[in-house]
Computed example of a mutant assay.
Amino acid sequence: MARSNLSLPLLAALLGVACLSLMDAFMKGASLAVGAYSAALLRAVIGAGIMLPVWAVAGLRRPPPKAMKLHAERGVVSCFMALTFFYALTKLPIAETIAISFVAPLIALYLARILLGEEIRPTAIWGSVLGFCGTIVIVWGRLGRSDLDQDALLGLGAITVSALLYAYNFIVIRRQSVLAGPAEIAFFHSFVTAVILGAVAPLFFVNPDATVLSHTGAAAALTVAGSMAIAWAYARAEAQYLVPMEYSGFLWASLFGWVFFREAPAPATILGTALIVAGCLIAARRKRPEQTMV
């Protein structure tokens, strides 16, 4: 297998995480207004509408059965992952919600070993453990200064379920990326979610106002951009190199949480972020460029 430069895949993954973190901020506002279900459905419908012409320009083709199966699998996983995550955002601050979700990349590293057969380097293990320790510091600081009321417990439960689904989602992305292009992946990601959520729309959908529509529209565009960037990256590098980039999401979440909701990070949050960034750098590090082939 040819040697590969990791710089572009790492940057693409970082850009994808930034887009998705900004999307979270827009979706928190929309979810608070009309509920997580309605906001998630609107995002999926708009996202599919954006991606259909993009996919057509990229070379519309009928996916082979194996790819279609993965598109459907990821759509189902992503549907419930998004619902639980957006619900958690209505109960917890953005930065803390994303911090807790960082357990997903840690789990994904080992799922990649079990399900994809990827060899995990010691630096990737230690970097992920350090990033996870940073997450624990953040969560501990949050719980230490906040009462655990019913809303907080519901939010913690929802983000735990979302994180487990997110970990498996990484594995499906890796499999998808070797069978389909980013445009196709991004379209079916939104389309399958829209179909699943739309099935119960008569029971749960809340009509949005102009502000909610604009927020979900921006969220849909950011989801498409982030998904395509991450799909492009995962097609060119192993999961163990890219997964640690997810930890940078906390930095973006802290920024967007402050800008949109005035959610200032606590001292424990700052310390945990430092550990997370250090973990990212360690996990992405290689001994020499020529020693690693993907």
Rank of each mutant, 00 (worst) to 15 (best):
residue 138 I to H: 05
residue 147 D to I: 03
residue 141 G to F: 09
residue 163 A to F: 04
residue 165 L to Q: 09
residue 163 A to Y: 00
residue 148 L to F: 05
residue 148 L to S: 04
residue 157 G to F: 01
residue 156 L to M: 13
residue 148 L to Q: 03
residue 165 L to C: 15
residue 160 T to I: 14
residue 164 L to K: 01
residue 141 G to V: 07
residue 158 A to V: 01
residue 158 A to I: 04
residue 154 L to F: 13
residue 140 W to Y: 12
residue 162 S to I: 03
residue 159 I to E: 11
residue 167 A to S: 12
residue 158 A to T: 04
residue 139 V to T: 14
residue 166 Y to S: 13
residue 151 D to Q: 12
residue 137 V to I: 14
residue 149 D to F: 02
residue 158 A to W: 01
residue 141 G to Y: 08
residue 166 Y to N: 12
residue 164 L to V: 15
residue 154 L to V: 15
residue 149 D to Q: 05
residue 143 L to G: 05
residue 150 Q to A: 12
residue 167 A to E: 02
residue 138 I to R: 04
residue 153 L to T: 06
residue 166 Y to G: 08
residue 149 D to T: 05
residue 143 L to Q: 00
residue 137 V to Y: 05
residue 138 I to E: 05
residue 138 I to K: 06
residue 141 G to R: 10
residue 147 D to H: 05
residue 159 I to G: 13
residue 162 S to N: 14
residue 145 R to A: 12
residue 156 L to T: 13
residue 155 G to P: 02
residue 151 D to G: 15
residue 138 I to P: 00
residue 141 G to S: 12
residue 166 Y to H: 14
residue 154 L to W: 13
residue 151 D to T: 14
residue 145 R to V: 12
residue 155 G to R: 08
residue 160 T to K: 03
residue 151 D to A: 15
residue 144 G to S: 09
residue 145 R to E: 13
residue 143 L to K: 02
residue 146 S to R: 13
residue 155 G to M: 09
residue 137 V to A: 09
residue 161 V to W: 01
residue 144 G to N: 08
residue 162 S to V: 07
residue 164 L to C: 09
residue 158 A to F: 00
residue 151 D to R: 10
residue 155 G to S: 06
residue 155 G to F: 07
residue 141 G to K: 08
residue 150 Q to R: 10
residue 165 L to N: 07
residue 156 L to P: 10
residue 138 I to Y: 00
residue 165 L to M: 15
residue 152 A to F: 09
residue 148 L to R: 03
residue 165 L to Y: 10
residue 157 G to Y: 01
residue 164 L to A: 14
residue 159 I to L: 08
residue 140 W to N: 04
residue 143 L to W: 07
residue 146 S to N: 11
residue 153 L to R: 08
residue 139 V to M: 10
residue 150 Q to D: 09
residue 151 D to E: 12
residue 149 D to H: 10
residue 138 I to T: 06
residue 164 L to E: 00
residue 161 V to G: 07
residue 166 Y to I: 00
residue 152 A to L: 15
residue 150 Q to Y: 02
residue 149 D to G: 15
residue 159 I to N: 10
residue 153 L to V: 13
residue 154 L to G: 10
residue 155 G to Y: 07
residue 139 V to W: 03
residue 157 G to Q: 01
residue 139 V to P: 00
residue 137 V to W: 01
residue 150 Q to N: 04
residue 166 Y to V: 04
residue 159 I to W: 07
residue 163 A to W: 02
residue 162 S to D: 11
